[in-house]
Design a protein around this nucleic acid. Structure first.
Lengths: 230, 230
DNA sequence: TCCTTAATACTAACATGTTAGTTGACGATT
DNA sequence: AATCGTCAACTAACATGTTAGTATTAAGGA
């Protein structure tokens, strides 16, 4: 028995509901619970050693977020995604990241610029060393830094909540030769525009960078049709 | 007894939890439950004639959305907002509406253009007739139309979920002489740019339009300090 | 053999009982 | 009089019992 691949809730903080929610969310986003997976409240209760109340609350929140589909009085499944939803998520992400990079370009401090520069240099080194998991983390940090440098604490979370389907689909993309190197170049272009305080260049560079994800996701609709709606 | 100013859940559809959620959300967004209001589960149960389960689920969702603050084992209150949160909401709204208007400007059909034109003309007539509630509705419809014309069904809901604090603060703004007429002009500028397919003009016109809200909200921090955090 | 139908088993949804943590008030102590 | 500690009352959080709707399966008829 695989012990259900659910993270132990003991390691998490907050109320029981909160911990169950985090555990399930993590399992779904990491594709350990792939789209279509049937979630039974009873099973979750047993595996996590909690009663049905916190599980019900957690599933209600996941349902509101669109990560699970509840079929009334019958079952609840991990939601599938459609290419339309992924396109929409990409559109929303682009909107937020573009707005963020515009604001940061105009208002950046020297410290912020230094932090971004350091991060991008690190990216280049990691790719050179072929440390791709390290690069992945640095990549995520680059975007998180930008979000936080807007001065608004919540935008990073909004971006997450809007990119849910995107994050899951991204898990399925096969490592592509040369893509990390390209991504570094795109990050460098964004950084250069921020440095020069060239808003138009920053906007276009970010648009292009975010836009690069969709064409790589497109083939999934055929190669992983079981995860798509209809 | 005011019967608590909660909408009767009989008029709503969906599960009990869903209906309770909608009822509470409506009461909070309309400021019938102003920030700081203490919400007792027991009282809600009694008023709506339901048990604690659906109320708990509804409050959990409202808490996740940031509309209520739950103080563990103690109480749950309608959340106050800070000027920072309002600025953030405005930033997010601007990001989404700008991205939407850019996309619509590039891809609009003649029918869409006609619908927007009709709406803006209606706005002008309503302001001329001093029908300000009618104008308010047409204003909202204008923005909803733009969102829907992106071709993405969910963006309108994302906009709502991101503008929660903005919507509540807006309720407190006193009617300002001449503002509706100005808003119509701004809508006309946006429409003109869409017609001409001038992306830069559309972006700037939308940025300006959304930006007009913040300065009108600023005075609230003093005139309604009781609704603000700290 | 295939379709219809009725009974059964299973699930989410709801109701209610129980636990545990917080708050506020009152009284004792300094 | 002021402060600290204790206790009682209240609340959210959790556990569990109950209901009602759905899906599956098996039986019976065409």
């Amino acid at each position: 028995m695989a012990e259900s691949s659910l993270n132990k809730i003991q390691n998490l903080s907050g109320s029981l509901s909160q911990r169950v929610y985090q555990s399930l969310r993590e399992a779904i986003l990491s594709m350990q619970y792939p789209p279509g997976t049937v979630i039974r409240k009873g099973a979750i209760c047993e595996q996590l050693g909690v009663s049905r109340s916190p599980v019900a609350e957690a599933l209600a929140r996941l349902s509101a977020e669109g990560l699970v589909d509840v079929i009334p009085q019958s079952a609840t499944k991990v939601s599938c995604f459609s290419m339309d939803e992924i396109r929409e998520a990409s559109f929303l992400r682009q909107a937020l990241e573009v707005a963020a990079v515009e604001k940061v370009t105009l208002e950046r401090s020297e410290e912020q610029l230094a932090a971004l520069t350091r991060n991008v240099r690190m990216q280049a080194l990691l790719v050179e060393d072929k440390d791709f998991v390290g690069f992945y983390q640095a990549d995520e940090e680059f975007h998180t830094l930008l979000m936080n440098f807007t001065g608004f604490n919540g935008v990073s979370q909004v971006l997450d909540s809007v990119s849910l389907h995107l994050v899951r689909a991204r898990m399925l993309i096969l490592p592509e030769e040369g893509r990390p190197a390209e991504a570094v170049k795109e990050h460098q272009a964004i950084l250069a525009a921020i440095k020069e305080q060239d808003v138009d260049a920053a906007r276009e560079a970010m648009k292009y960078h975010i836009g690069q994800l969709i064409p790589r996701i497109l083939p999934l609709e055929e190669s992983h049709a079981e995860y798509f709606k209809m």
